[in-house]
Design a binder for these strands. Sequence first.
DNA 1: TTTACGATCTGTAGCAACTACAGGAGCAAG
DNA 2: CTTGCTCCTGTAGTTGCTACAGATCGTAAA
Lengths: 139, 139
Amino acid sequence: MSDDHKRAIALRRGDLAKATGCNLETIRYYEGVGLLPPPSRSVAGHRVYGAEDVRRLRFILRSRELGFSLKDIRGLLGLGSGSLVSCAEVKAATETHLNAVRAKIADLLRIEAVLAETTARCSGEHIPECPVLDALRNP
Amino acid sequence: MSDDHKRAIALRRGDLAKATGCNLETIRYYEGVGLLPPPSRSVAGHRVYGAEDVRRLRFILRSRELGFSLKDIRGLLGLGSGSLVSCAEVKAATETHLNAVRAKIADLLRIEAVLAETTARCSGEHIPECPVLDALRNP
DNA sequence: TTTACGATCTGTAGCAACTACAGGAGCAAG
DNA sequence: CTTGCTCCTGTAGTTGCTACAGATCGTAAA
């Protein structure tokens, strides 16, 4: 009478993949790296998942969409050490990540400016010296 | 009398690394993947580089800074197949890459908006439900 | 019942683009 | 001659998957 007192849903790996949009093999991978707990098994040894696994995997995938690394996500899930992640800790992790994202955006904007400028200067004709190649040659 | 008619400079691997700012091991790696040609060797078997190697490695590093993949760079260097990369081909490759960069920027801006909004909504206090975790849970 | 097809199981190898080590030699200075 | 740096080779680790190979399992039609 412990586990699920409601009629438990039982999903196979392919079902979980479809339910979450996750790649089939990635599920096994996440189990391997400890993001998903080892699920119970059918008599034949097939993995059997429940509603909690769906929620957890959705959380992981959503975090990945937002650019968190698997290490970050381990933290968000409270698998780091002391467990029981506090709201403040999650906020801190998110802010750190936000800074990293902003840094990357700044990087890419600089790159974009250089690329846009160089291609704009290039006619595509057979000119003695190519400004694009020049830009690559001269930092 | 062929190779270098000027007094050739002779750099060891560490010298080339310093001259370009490239990591020492990366030089060997680039040789392995065919971006740098196998250099001549000293009697003892040590790699010996010249001015052309410095130019080529600088070109590679600069391209990497701008986010080109090694595959892209192989193309820019004309190692693909028919060699002799035309200005138009370089321009096309650069524009393709520019589009990819812009797409990535757009991605990151969306991510940034979500992260900024969620952390703004979070006080860091012990509130029943954490809006950051909610945001991760509900796509 | 048999047979076929799909889904699942395991382990392992591959991708990018490096980085870092282990264990052995070379070379210059004190 | 010894110390200490550089260099040599090959290989393993990183991150986040993805894709096989070869075996087994579950189900549905013939």
